[in-house]
Design a protein around this nucleic acid. Sequence first.
DNA 1: TTGTAGGCGTTATCAT
DNA 2: ATGATAACGCCTACAA
Lengths: 347, 347
Amino acid sequence: MATIRDVAKRAGVSTATVSHVINGTRPVAERTRAHVLQVMKELNFVPSAFGRGLRTNSLKTIGFIAADLTNPFFAQVFRGVEKKAREAHYTVIVSHSDENAEHEEEAIQNLVAKGVDGILLAPVRTDPQGAAFYSRIPVPLMTYDRHLTTGDIPSVVTNSQDAVREAISFFRERGHEHFALIAGKQGLSTTVERLQGFEQATESCAHWVFDGDSRYDGGVQAAHWLSELKTRPSVLMVGNNLMAMGLVVTLQTQYPALLASTVLIALDDEPWTTFVRPPLSVIVQPTHAIGVTAADLLLQRIHHHEVPLLTTLPCDFVARVDPVSYRHQLSAQSKIQHGLHEEGLEH
Amino acid sequence: MATIRDVAKRAGVSTATVSHVINGTRPVAERTRAHVLQVMKELNFVPSAFGRGLRTNSLKTIGFIAADLTNPFFAQVFRGVEKKAREAHYTVIVSHSDENAEHEEEAIQNLVAKGVDGILLAPVRTDPQGAAFYSRIPVPLMTYDRHLTTGDIPSVVTNSQDAVREAISFFRERGHEHFALIAGKQGLSTTVERLQGFEQATESCAHWVFDGDSRYDGGVQAAHWLSELKTRPSVLMVGNNLMAMGLVVTLQTQYPALLASTVLIALDDEPWTTFVRPPLSVIVQPTHAIGVTAADLLLQRIHHHEVPLLTTLPCDFVARVDPVSYRHQLSAQSKIQHGLHEEGLEH
DNA sequence: TTGTAGGCGTTATCAT
DNA sequence: ATGATAACGCCTACAA
């Protein structure tokens, strides 16, 4: 591998000039510039990322921590992240947390040790010590999907609370009177907010809540729970996509009558939700936009610009009421909050 | 950020000693060792990846290029890659090619510029110039999913050819006599081999082949093509998962009778294949193992060990014939070939 | 068992 | 408009 010195020598200039040609960081006579470029081609010169990193303390790399890329939600967010990063000539290192605090911590350590310029994560920890832990991380951080309720780490989330409320209302207006929610893992901001949305929309009518765990098994358990209720909900909202799968598989194989007689609402518009009979209604989160936005804001932070503490992106609601489907755009504007605690979490 | 020199000074030893403590690269008196470790904790010292990279010319990072991580096949392969990499204290940079040669080239350039130790890719180019291009890449390379038929770049693939043959045979033995294949993108080794498997199994009976493009649209077109055939296949094999989705969506909405009367066989066991009625039979590729194996072999190469030119992992075939499903393990052993061209591609 | 010092490839400060 | 040169943080002969 040729070095900047080889190029300089062969081109008959100093390393400084070569460097400035590479980075366009000070004027270079057009003639020399062309010549240097020419020599670089000849020698097949590629500037060493290590040398540069050592000098500038940046490899133009960010870390992305997903719970599980096999979950389409994270895969789609990642596509957005990678797109934005690539445009800014950044590169992305990916790790998994599997919703496990130790894995997450290890992943963060590794990323920091690799000298990433910043980290994007869907935080696993919800306790105050968690927030403190995140705050001590010595590189810029952004969370996506979930936000921390204490501390000053900025986040990009969706207004799924509004979406849940409006989805339930949609069916209330059409005569339904019994609703249930399969809630997600305790403590996650998404779980809390979706529960709030549900409570808001169902306050004056019959409703049940099942405490799930945000995993496939939670859905399986919920199906059994559902089958044992004396009075049954006619509309069932599932708080995340994995539980929705577990629920539907179990209903389909063990309680097909229940599946046929209940309106299901799931999160995220995955192909299978249209393949099931009856098809599921879905709340569609702007996954790609979450990734783009989160990456964008992280890069802002890396460049020492201020960013809002909370950025909220709008969801759509797609009601699939055979044989038609309606799509509702829930809010045209995304919302930005600069002070989480001052303004509160309610809208 | 504390440097190795800060630690050395504070601990009253030389930087050499600290370095050796960090890397265990020469004996250090237990007493000093403990003390140095202690000081490292105090100072919150993390060795700079840049300094180290510059010296050792390695950041312990590999590149992974997927066509699209949103496709569960790639997401699952990646999980395997990341697992293996993490165990070896490597880290993974992820890029997308979107089955596009220019994107792929750009991604490769970026990875090389970042100083990755090696690259894993599902190659897009199938022409001889492509093979030449890949050969010029100045870091160790491995392909997965597809292999190149010229050149000396090692690969990890599956025996989907055998799997296709056996899947078709399964239904032949049960009385079916008309078969069709929706083939994948021209030139890919997977397309060629699956076609061969199909031809082998159907040589003495009626069969059709539709040239697809390995994308969702190919499946949509195939559905229309199918509807216009005078004589219709009773068994339809789809050469990749995206086309299978396009096909099923189109059949379900536009030709439901066709969907009901045709046995469909798809690749990869995704949830939706069980949700459709009737459920699809599937050839299950060992996606996670592909990732683990590919990463393992790449690391071998990075450490200058010889690796086989072609490693073939076995698929399973799951026949879903309502109300039962049979799972066939197609071969207990994975196959390894050291010379692709000497031994040929047939088994 | 430990220390000294040179150099990896780049950028950036001073000179010229 | 260009050059000389000192860092950046680490590893590793070579010396002691």
